[in-house]
């Protein structure tokens, strides 16, 4: 394999990781549509979902181009099976209650914020441009979800207990964020992506700061951490998401939908 092919196949893989995380998280948020605690939040959650779907489209479209096999954003979204998906395990976790959704959103948004900030300086111009556009949206997601974490953490006894429970439940998917592999190493060597080990302390700091404001505890569960998203080892939830998401294009393979 020559170096360009190697680079492109690593970049393709990396773009799927970013794009799939956006797509699956956008899907989960869309499930809230019409069911949020108050109308204003219905509008906020659909807005964030829309941002994620927009990011997914840019990233998957670019992934298809890098791959060079003529696969479009839709071909990638609708015609891969769960084992080929590269989204973070956290993104596919069920919504649970509103607090649980906000915890999931907060943890991923803070990660996205630091990651996209670094990616906006990528040596790959197109990825840098997508990251620069996305980081503005993500900054808003961080603000919205931190605001909620603080209000729920420091609201009523019930809200505090619920949201702390969600943090404890979701924390086992945190290591998966930073579990880089040979793809990262290769792309790092060409200044295309940042070192995830350098993102982790930034993430820790932002998360810690909000947790303190919210009066919430970071759980100690390091032994039970679940990883594997980068090799397509998902939780069982992803299969159901895809069954729902992909049903039309798969049931009518000859049809085009615009």
């Amino acid at each position: 394999m020559n170096t360009t092919t190697e680079k492109n196949s690593a970049l393709f893989e990396y773009l799927l990781r970013l794009g799939d995380t956006s797509l699956i998280l956008g899907h989960r948020l869309a499930e809230w549509c019409g069911h949020a605690p108050i109308l204003e939040e219905d509008i906020a959650l659909t807005n964030i979902s829309l941002d994620h779907i927009g990011q997914a489209r840019l990233l998957l479209d670019y992934a298809g181009k890098i791959e060079g096999k003529g696969r479009s954003e839709d071909a990638l979204a609708y015609h891969r099976d769960a084992r080929q998906f590269r989204n973070l395990l956290m993104a596919e976790q069920p919504n649970g209650d509103f607090g649980n959704t906000m915890v999931r959103q907060f943890l991923i948004s803070v990660y996205n914020f630091h990651l996209y900030s670094a990616l906006s300086k990528s040596a790959d111009a197109e990825l840098a441009a997508i990251a620069a556009k996305s980081v503005k949206e993500v900054a808003y997601h961080v603000r919205h979800s931190s605001d909620w974490l603080i209000r729920l953490g420091d609201g009523t006894t019930e809200s505090h207990e619920r949201v702390q429970q969600s943090i404890n439940d979701l924390w086992i998917y945190v290591d998966d964020f930073f579990n880089g592999d040979e793809v990262d190493v290769l792309l790092m060597s060409q200044n295309i992506v940042p070192d995830l080990n350098a993102i982790r302390p930034l993430w820790n700091e932002t998360v810690q700061l909000t947790m303190v404001k919210a009066g919430l505890q970071i759980p100690q569960v390091n032994s039970a951490m679940r990883t594997g998203s980068r090799k397509g080892n998902h939780t069982e939830y992803l299969g159901y998401i895809l069954a729902e998401m992909q049903f039309l294009p798969r049931a009518y393979p000859d049809a085009e939908w615009l």
């Binding site: 509008i43 906020a44 605001d147």
Partner: peptide, 11 residues
């Protein structure tokens, strides 16, 4: 106020 501002932006 903070949530009002965020909601205003979204709505």
């Amino acid at each position: 106020a903070e949530m009002a501002l965020l909601n205003a932006r979204d709505v």
